[in-house]
């Protein structure tokens, strides 16, 4: 290769892209690496770039605790139940918003979005006072209910956009070859909207798994989810390694879920779903 060729190749390199990728790597992956290192560090003092002593002692400590396993189980149960209920409630509502015309449709749709505009904590507190009189505070189903409120936006907004994006002519073509309205929904509308709906379900699951405010306000002290356990760990005894180990453990379920999502749908489908 001549020097001229080299210079050309040099100029062809997309430097903006490389710089952007590097900055994003530092900002996004950097903290993850630090947390990952802390989880396996036994001694790590300031000037050193890497931990002085490595080990699995804190993993043993964390995994040996019964409350960690109980919290993990509660978190998983909670996420599954909330996601399932949210899908059952929100998907038919989303279809109605997208395709049916009924009085008050726009006002109702907006009301789901305005929930997100209020300061969340204020809303949660007023709900908590109602739950207190109903005896729902400190119960699993109380937490399920409060979490459902949080999922409404994603589970209605995204699927509504998804149903709206399904080309009417696809449905008409199915009617044309002999499918009734219900058959058209199951065989054409739902499969066409599925990637975006799957994205909404994924977001709901992960969001519920990590939610702390509602879970803490309604669930404490009887219902302890993983993130709440982590907060109490850090509040009681500031051991960085315990926090790091719990972070990694919390990261596992959502990572598995993301992998599953990748299997169902390509990134472009996910993007299309989120973009509406």
């Amino acid at each position: 290769m001549s020097t001229a060729d080299l210079r050309l190749a040099w100029r062809d390199v997309d430097w903006t892209g490389i710089v952007l990728a590097a900055v994003m790597a530092v900002v996004i992956i950097g903290p993850l690496v630090v947390v990952g290192l802390w989880a396996f560090a036994e001694v790590w003092r300031f000037p050193s770039l890497l931990p002085q002593e490595w080990g699995l002692r804190y993993w043993g400590m964390t995994l040996g605790r019964a409350d960690v396993w109980a919290a993990l189980s509660v978190s998983l149960q909670l996420s599954f139940v909330v996601t399932l209920l949210s899908a059952l409630i929100c998907l038919p509502a989303a279809y109605a918003f997208a395709r049916l015309d009924f009085p008050g449709r726009d006002v109702l749709f907006l009301s789901f979005l305005t929930i997100q505009a209020f300061p969340r904590f204020g809303l949660l507190i007023s709900i908590a006072t109602i739950f207190l009189t109903l005896g729902l505070v400190g119960t699993f189903w109380g937490v399920v209910l409060i979490q459902l409120v949080n999922t409404l936006m994603f589970m209605i907004w995204i699927p509504t956009a998804a149903f709206q994006n399904v080309d009417r002519r696809l449905e008409e073509a199915a009617r044309d070859v002999g499918a009734g309205p219900i058959r058209v929904f199951w065989s054409v509308t739902l499969p066409q909207a599925f990637p975006a709906i799957a994205a909404a379900i994924l977001l709901t699951f992960v969001g519920t798994f990590y939610e702390t405010e509602g879970a803490w306000l309604i669930g404490a002290p009887h219902v302890r989810t993983m993130p709440i356990l982590m907060i109490s760990f850090i509040n009681n005894q500031l051991v960085v390694q315990l926090g790091a180990v719990l972070s990694l453990m919390l990261w596992v379920p959502s990572f598995l879920f993301l992998l599953m999502a990748r299997r169902w749908m390509g990134p472009e489908a996910l993007g299309r779903g989120l973009g509406g």
Partner: peptide, 20 residues
């Protein structure tokens, strides 16, 4: 009669094939 009960068949401008 609704479309599914008519002995007609339509070809659409946008072909309207089901991508799934």
């Amino acid at each position: 009669l609704p479309p599914e009960r008519r002995p007609t068949s339509m070809m659409f401008q946008s072909h309207a094939l089901w991508s799934h």
